[in-house]
């Protein structure tokens, strides 16, 4: 059997080293992601895919993000990409669903700190106040000039996860570093 191909590092590991206090970005590499298409809703990975638009649900080792009325993005920290794909496929194939490994498509960034929401508001048109963009919310929208999937992880507006297309990750990293410059004392 061929060796498993791993995605090479998309971003240099020190790209976020000089962010101001109150803001930190972690590059979450090796997160397996799979696209799930399913019309006949069923429980997958002990989780029912969220039907409410712009939300996500927690799975035992990752998240299930609403991307469309019959489309979800499933992430997993513990499983290998091919394992996640085959697990999902086994779970939904009887119902005519489909699962495809898309781990290399997006990079996961975790943005946290008291400045996180303020920083996002510089490039995102959505209202990200925790009373509106509550924990469990997600949004597919524009951040700067690129499209991202944005997840709210806490109820204080200080913890977000951003999925960005791998080929736009360099741009978004530059944008975050540039946008955070105004918070440097």
């Amino acid at each position: 059997m061929a060796d498993t191909l791993y995605r090479s590092q998309v971003l240099p590991s020190d790209v976020f080293a000089a962010l101001p206090e109150g803001l930190s970005v972690t590059i979450e590499s090796h997160v397996a992601m799979a696209g799930l298409r399913l019309r006949d809703l069923a429980e997958v990975l002990n989780t029912t895919p969220p039907v409410q638009p712009n939300t996500w649900a927690a799975t035992p080792d990752g998240q299930m993000v609403w991307l469309g009325p019959d489309e979800w993005l499933v992430t997993s920290r513990d499983q290998q990409p091919h394992e996640l794909e085959s697990t999902l496929r086994e779970a939904v194939k009887e119902r005519g669903g489909a699962a495809v490994d898309v781990s290399a498509q997006r990079l996961s960034l975790r943005l946290s700190g008291v400045l996180a929401r303020d920083l996002l508001s510089l490039g995102c048109s959505l209202d990200l106040h925790p009373s509106v963009f509550t924990v469990g919310s997600s949004a597919q929208t524009a951040l700067g000039m690129t499209n991202v999937v944005l997840l709210a992880l806490d109820s204080a507006g200080e913890d977000y996860r951003i999925f960005v297309r791998s080929s736009f990750a360099g741009y978004l990293a530059d944008w975050i570093v540039d946008a955070s410059a105004e918070y440097v004392n």
């Binding site: 638009p53 712009n54 469309g68 009325p69 048109s125 959505l126 949004a139 929208t141 524009a142």
Partner: peptide, 11 residues
């Protein structure tokens, strides 16, 4: 109809 109000540039 799915996501709610969004900026025109997303369409």
């Amino acid at each position: 109809p799915w996501c709610g109000p969004r900026e025109e540039t997303e369409f």
